[in-house]
Simulated assay, not measured.
Amino acid sequence: MEPILIFKALSNEKRLMILEWLKDPERHFVRQQHLSENDHFDGGVCVGSIRDKAELVQSVISSYLNMMQNAGLLESKRIGKWTYYRRNEKVIKEFSEYIQRDL
């Protein structure tokens, strides 16, 4: 975990909102049509659904999701022609502990 990358990723309102939405994807997104129980990626949300909710163009949302994944906040899985993202709860917990312990 690199705290500076996480702070940078969270310094943008839309990226912060995406992380908040992905905390409870059933509440914030419609059922993911191309993701079945056999895909084993619980909580995953398709890039298109995130893009639509964030009201951003594809290139911007891809950049945002990539930045958040590089910071460790998100994990992704490609299923067919779709890519799904979900929160990386392990890294988020480590970051929370870092803030409580060191800041």
Rank of each mutant, 00 (worst) to 15 (best):
R31N: 12
E2G: 11
R31E: 14
P25F: 02
G48L: 01
N12V: 02
N12Q: 08
E13I: 13
E2N: 15
Q58Y: 06
E55L: 00
F29D: 12
V47R: 06
E75Y: 07
G43A: 11
R78I: 09
N70F: 02
G72T: 09
M68Y: 01
A9P: 04
D52R: 11
L73D: 01
L10D: 00
F7Q: 02
R27H: 04
K23V: 00
K23T: 02
D52P: 02
Q32A: 01
D39S: 07
R31G: 04
E13P: 01
Q33F: 04
N66I: 05
K23C: 00
Q32M: 10
L10N: 03
T83L: 01
L74S: 01
V45M: 00
I18K: 01
F7T: 02
D24Q: 05
V91D: 05
W82Y: 15
L73G: 10
I4F: 08
S36C: 03
L65R: 12
E97G: 00
F95W: 00
A9C: 08
I92R: 12
H34R: 14
N38R: 14
L16G: 07
F29T: 13
S49R: 14
L22T: 07
S76W: 07
E20I: 09
H34I: 02
G44H: 05
T83K: 00
D52E: 13
Y84D: 09
S63W: 10
V30P: 03
C46I: 11
I18S: 03
L73E: 11
M67K: 03
A71C: 13
L5W: 06
G80F: 14
Q69H: 06
H28S: 02
Q69L: 07
G43M: 10
N12A: 01
I79L: 15
L19M: 12
S49L: 11
E2M: 11
K53T: 14
I18A: 06
S63I: 04
M1Y: 12
S76H: 01
L56V: 15
I92S: 03
Y85A: 01
I79V: 13
D39Y: 09
S96C: 09
Y64K: 13
I6Q: 10
K77R: 09
S59C: 07
F29G: 11
L16Y: 09
E20F: 04
W21S: 13
C46Q: 15
C46P: 01
G44I: 05
R15E: 03
G48T: 13
L19T: 00
Y84K: 03
G48K: 00
K14D: 13
E26I: 08
M1Q: 13
V60K: 02
T83V: 14
I61K: 06
N38A: 08
F41C: 06
K77W: 03
R86E: 08
G48R: 01
L65H: 04
L19I: 06
S63C: 11
V57Y: 08
L35C: 02
K93H: 13
R31L: 10
E89S: 14
M1C: 12
E89D: 14
F41I: 06
N66P: 03
E20Y: 11
S96E: 08
E20W: 05
K8Q: 15
I61F: 07
E89T: 14
G43K: 04
